[in-house]
Structures are given as structure tokens and as C-alpha cells.
Deep mutational scan, measured.
Amino acid sequence: GQVNVNNTTYTFPTPKLAKEFAQKAAKKYNLTVHVSGNTVTVK
């Protein structure tokens, strides 16, 4: 799974890890998680 945070893309071996990372990043920066297919964007 891929996660985009502040124009930086992070790649994870599983969608589960990507989702967990996205949720932590969203909480940390007070942003929202947007899911589109296999790509998760935090903005």
C-alpha cells in the first residue's frame, strides 16, 4: 500500500500497515485520511 503525506509517498508491504501509518499521520498533523483504490492520501 502507498501513503501520500505532504507530497511525500511512503510504500508499505501490506495495505494494513499503510492504513495504520496513515491514521497515525492524520492524527499527528490533524489531517484527514482519503482512500482511493490502493493509495491513501493524508491531507
Results as ranks from 00 to 15, higher is better:
2 Q>M: 12
2 Q>W: 11
2 Q>N: 11
3 V>R: 07
3 V>P: 12
3 V>F: 10
3 V>W: 07
4 N>Y: 06
4 N>I: 12
4 N>W: 09
4 N>L: 11
4 N>H: 13
4 N>S: 12
4 N>A: 12
5 V>D: 11
5 V>H: 12
5 V>G: 13
5 V>P: 11
5 V>T: 11
6 N>P: 10
6 N>T: 13
6 N>S: 13
7 N>M: 15
7 N>A: 14
7 N>S: 15
8 T>E: 06
8 T>K: 14
8 T>W: 15
9 T>K: 08
9 T>Y: 09
9 T>S: 08
9 T>L: 07
10 Y>L: 06
10 Y>H: 03
10 Y>P: 00
11 T>S: 06
11 T>M: 06
12 F>W: 02
13 P>M: 08
13 P>H: 07
13 P>W: 05
13 P>V: 06
14 T>Y: 03
14 T>N: 11
14 T>F: 03
14 T>A: 02
14 T>R: 02
15 P>D: 08
15 P>Q: 10
15 P>E: 14
15 P>H: 14
16 K>S: 08
16 K>Y: 08
16 K>D: 10
16 K>Q: 13
16 K>M: 09
16 K>G: 07
17 L>E: 10
17 L>Y: 04
17 L>F: 04
17 L>N: 03
18 A>S: 02
18 A>W: 02
18 A>T: 01
18 A>I: 01
19 K>I: 11
20 E>I: 14
20 E>P: 00
20 E>D: 07
21 F>S: 00
21 F>H: 01
21 F>M: 02
21 F>N: 01
22 A>I: 02
22 A>Y: 02
22 A>T: 01
23 Q>N: 09
24 K>Y: 15
24 K>C: 15
24 K>F: 14
24 K>I: 14
24 K>T: 07
25 A>M: 15
25 A>W: 15
25 A>R: 03
25 A>Y: 15
25 A>C: 15
25 A>P: 00
26 A>H: 07
26 A>E: 08
27 K>Y: 08
27 K>Q: 10
27 K>R: 10
27 K>E: 10
27 K>L: 11
28 K>V: 10
28 K>Q: 09
28 K>F: 13
29 Y>P: 07
29 Y>V: 04
29 Y>G: 06
30 N>E: 04
30 N>Q: 07
30 N>K: 09
30 N>C: 07
30 N>D: 05
30 N>I: 03
31 L>I: 10
31 L>G: 05
31 L>V: 12
31 L>F: 06
32 T>D: 08
32 T>G: 05
32 T>N: 08
33 V>L: 06
33 V>T: 04
33 V>D: 00
33 V>S: 02
33 V>W: 03
34 H>Q: 10
34 H>I: 15
34 H>K: 08
34 H>A: 09
34 H>W: 14
35 V>L: 09
35 V>C: 03
36 S>Q: 11
36 S>T: 09
36 S>R: 09
36 S>M: 10
36 S>C: 08
36 S>G: 03
37 G>D: 04
37 G>Y: 04
37 G>V: 03
37 G>T: 02
37 G>E: 04
38 N>V: 09
38 N>T: 08
38 N>I: 06
38 N>H: 05
39 T>N: 05
39 T>P: 00
40 V>W: 03
41 T>R: 05
41 T>M: 07
41 T>W: 08
41 T>G: 02
41 T>S: 05
41 T>Q: 06
41 T>V: 10
42 V>G: 01
42 V>N: 00
42 V>K: 01
43 K>A: 10
43 K>Y: 15
43 K>L: 15
